[in-house]
Design a protein around this nucleic acid. Structure first.
Length: 116
DNA sequence: CACTTGACAACAA
DNA sequence: CTTGTTGCCAAGT
């Protein structure tokens, strides 16, 4: 469809762009898509059907907490997937969020990790 | 149609 | 540091 009636699709597209082992926040996606509200991102992801191929587990809130874990089956699946990708999660929160954070607007300047 | 809820976030106190 | 308030927008009741 030439004209997307729903930005929800955009949220899904951006989410699919998150590299493995990386994470981003609702706020950054909302800002990148200019949704005006980070809640729209959470709302959009909540609409995802089970068994989807969207890596929604890579989206956390600005504190790095897995606030959407209760929407996975089972809830621990979100943390399991992250840890499987090398992301450390403690007490439902990602440690060293800055280390894994991936910002949509920076996807173009994605040249070298520069990480340790 | 009015009010509440929510996978959020920024800010005030 | 913590808790409370406000802005945001769609969906549910």
């Amino acid at each position: 469809m030439a004209k997307k009636q729903h930005y929800i699709e955009w949220v899904y597209e951006v989410t699919k762009q998150i590299p493995k082992g990386r994470v981003t926040t609702y706020g950054h996606i909302a800002d990148y898509l200019a949704l005006g509200s980070a809640r729209m991102v959470g709302w959009a992801l909540k609409q995802l059907p089970d068994g989807n191929r969207i890596p929604a587990h890579r989206v956390v809130n600005h504190k790095g907490q897995l606030s959407g874990r209760h929407h996975f089956k089972p809830p621990e699946e979100m943390q399991s997937r992250l840890e499987r990708e090398g992301v450390t999660v403690v007490e439902h929160q990602i440690t060293q969020l800055e280390r894994y954070l991936w910002i949509p607007s920076q996807e173009l300047i994605w040249e070298e990790p520069e990480f340790e």
